[in-house]
Design a protein around this nucleic acid. Structure first.
Lengths: 205, 205
DNA sequence: GCCATGTTGCTGACAGAACAGTAACCTAAC
DNA sequence: GTTAGGTTACTGTTCTGTCAGCAACATGGC
């Protein structure tokens, strides 16, 4: 494969990220993408075979470029993972297009027969495991056990990051993505490391 | 308007909720909906004018039926609001179709020119205000002030509920929607009512 | 109580556009 | 001279929306 060809494909992937992000996968078209890279839609199909396949490669490509930006070339563990998540939130606040792509595609993926469903299932499973593992490390350092809380807390951390992105995309002026994410992560970490009585009391049906 | 007509329209709205939920708005078609109520797609357009308009009415209809189920006919305040949110999460764990509709549509609404965008902007703004107000009530009862934290916490509570729904829809067996939501709400409430030092420490860029 | 007249709730057929994918062909690079 | 990177042209499908017409129902005059 020629290096120019590789760069051409990367350009297509970047354009596809933007189109799927701004219009959704179902609503974004190959023509939209083709226009951005001065091609016909048939040219894109020549490179990627089908629209479904293109989406899969868009997601893979984004994962790769994420890892490239990480100097150590792999996600840190322990407390550093949580700091990394906060830093990611600050970085995300400056790249709405990519955030939008992830928000739209991850939600769309829960629909029947969506080509990215498996990707997102894997992704969340992996991330939950990594966050849970980081919690275990931090707990061990402090001589605490909190296994039951850790499972919930790991899912919560990912959830709050995603949910804040939706609100932020809808009204960027009304929600501070990064600062609020930081607040949430601190709150959830504290609930694991220094648990307290529930302020809710018993809840009747 | 005849009562049978009204019931017919409600049937269409229910069918539309299911279709938009399971396939998304862009990908779900009027024919899908028409089939479920034994009509032609032209019949649906006769009642609702356009697909966009139908979506708007689907969302309105769902809000109405939500309020009907609430005995006091309006959302409670203070600590009762938080209990209500937890109860809603338990109820949601038994109606994946409606949850899916909300997840898919709210995320899709951030795309350019989406007909439900205004609806969701309003919705989140209103909900954040209500949660913030409930926080203020609870703080007042306890003689605390936490105005700066409240803004963040209100957004976080909505965010974590939404985010957990996505993970739960993707792998219902791996995420306990209701219990995890309860855990998150308790954690965030505690962070407002009994704040502690951040476990993260300073974060370097 | 009954007919005339509008109104409502559809259907069937069609227009018009958009879209994914295919096939044949060209051209330039290796 | 064979392969890779495209284009043009076309196919078949799908989908929203429009329009004319029709049957059932409602309503007011008698």
């Amino acid at each position: 494969m020629r290096p120019e060809t590789l760069e051409r494909r990367r350009a297509i992937l970047r354009a596809a990220t933007e189109v799927f992000g701004s219009k959704g996968y179902a609503n974004g078209t190959l023509l939209d993408i083709a226009d951005q890279v001065d091609m016909t839609h048939a040219g894109i199909l020549h490179h990627f075979g089908s629209k479904d396949q293109l989406l899969v490669e868009v997601l893979r490509y984004r994962d790769e470029s994420d890892v490239e930006n990480l100097e150590q070339k792999h996600i840190p563990g322990g407390i550093e993972l949580f700091r990394h998540l906060v830093r990611t939130a600050f970085a995300n606040a400056r790249r709405a297009a990519i955030v939008q792509a992830y928000v739209v595609l991850s939600a769309e993926s829960v629909t029947d027969g969506h080509p990215a469903r498996e990707y997102f299932e894997d992704r969340y499973r992996t991330l939950r495991d990594e966050v849970a593992e980081a919690f275990r490390e931090v707990c061990a350092e402090r001589g605490i056990t909190a296994e039951d809380r850790i499972g919930h807390a790991a899912a919560c951390i990912l959830a709050v990051m995603d949910g804040l992105q939706v609100q932020w995309l809808l009204e960027p002026g009304k929600v501070e993505l990064a600062e609020t994410t930081e607040y949430a992560i601190e709150a959830i970490m504290t609930s694991v490391l220094e648990p307290r009585e529930s302020p809710l009391g018993p809840i009747s049906a």
